[in-house]
Design a protein around this nucleic acid. Structure first.
Lengths: 189, 189
DNA sequence: TTTCTTTGAGTGAGCACTCAATCAATTACA
DNA sequence: TGTAATTGATTGAGTGCTCACTCAAAGAAA
């Protein structure tokens, strides 16, 4: 556990490739050999950090989307988007360090994308399509392909993540409110 | 020159830390020592790749913004945003590999952000503020703080970049049109 | 002949990873 | 309960290897 905490700290600060197992052992207060008996190799340590993100990031986001669309009669774009963005920004703040490690990895290992998508089971996708279709029915959302709508949503969330991780842009209430308003506006008819 | 081309290729494919100078020399078709007589050290090679991006990325983006706001009487949100996003996406495609290397670097070296901002001189900022203020005057844009408006613009562009670099999302006409429409919608009153 | 460039074997440093030895906890037995 | 035996976890010096970088020698250009 100490090893994992130390690794997250160091990887997110200096990057995976620039962190030695010796440093990790020192920070964790254990002998270097311990790392290898528990995680087989350095890569195993990275996997132990990233796998939980892969397993939780998409399912939890999709759950957010669905939680807000339980009652179709009260469904509006606002009631869908606002809690979604709020939850995603909370998730981002809680997992900032691990997400940073994850994104670094994503840049040079495309197999992670596949793993990511495998963790978003079909039932979620159909439920989300149903929700978006319901909004289209009510003329509350632009009449684009559902995938294109989702891309715009993820684009804005991605932009917030990028600003936070790359430029240390603080997630003030003003900023996140504006991102939310902008997204709702963007998809309204 | 061959060395630089080989470096960009390898760094963007495998990452800076995972590329050895030996590999670069082999790909470039020169002896390893050549790299060090021309670029001092491996880091010098990275700088030679990144510096041009730093020097051009913000100025060229801001020039795009200003080119479209020459004639204040014809200024609309659409005439401002549409060419801007188009130019940024062209820039992204032309410089995808270098931008990828740049973003990797940005994640773990915050001094790059400072350099980036130093290359956006004050005249640009005032001109952009004037443009946004003019749109506010005409009630063609939301009445937020100008910085907040710029953040939303960059958020969308960042989201497109992220989708392209991280998830290999193709930049189809449909996608980029939707991003553009969404952004214009997002900032309209 | 002189000056500048290119070469690649060589070098020390640092890396991930190993493993025999040590330590700690648990069980076996009188 | 006290002690010996067994098992499993922890240690860190040691190992082989790869890395960035050097430099004397060879080659090319002037």
């Amino acid at each position: 556990m100490q090893i994992l905490i130390a690794s997250i700290e160091l990887f997110s600060e200096k990057g995976y490739a620039n962190t030695s197992t010796k440093e990790i052992a020192k920070k964790a207060g254990v002998a270097e050999g311990n790392i290898f008996s528990k995680y087989t190799n350095k890569r195993g340590l990275l996997d132990a950090i990233i796998t939980p993100v892969i397993k939780s990031i998409l399912p939890s986001a999709m759950q957010d989307l669905l939680d807000e669309s339980m009652d179709p009669s009260n469904l509006t774009l606002d009631s869908l988007i606002r809690p979604l963005l709020k939850n995603r920004i909370i998730f981002l703040q809680e997992n900032a360090k691990v997400l940073k490690i994850f994104i670094s990895e994503l840049l040079y290992d495309k197999s992670v994308v596949t793993q990511l998508l495998e963790n978003a089971p079909a039932p979620y996708w159909t439920a989300i399509n149903t929700t978006i279709d319901a909004l289209k029915e009510k003329k509350l959302i632009v009449n684009w392909d559902n995938l294109e709508i989702l891309k715009v949503i993820w684009s804005i969330i991605g932009g917030v993540v990028l600003g936070y991780l790359l430029f240390d842009q603080p997630l003030t209430k003003e900023s996140t409110d504006h991102s939310t308003d902008a997204l709702i506006n963007a998809l309204s008819i």
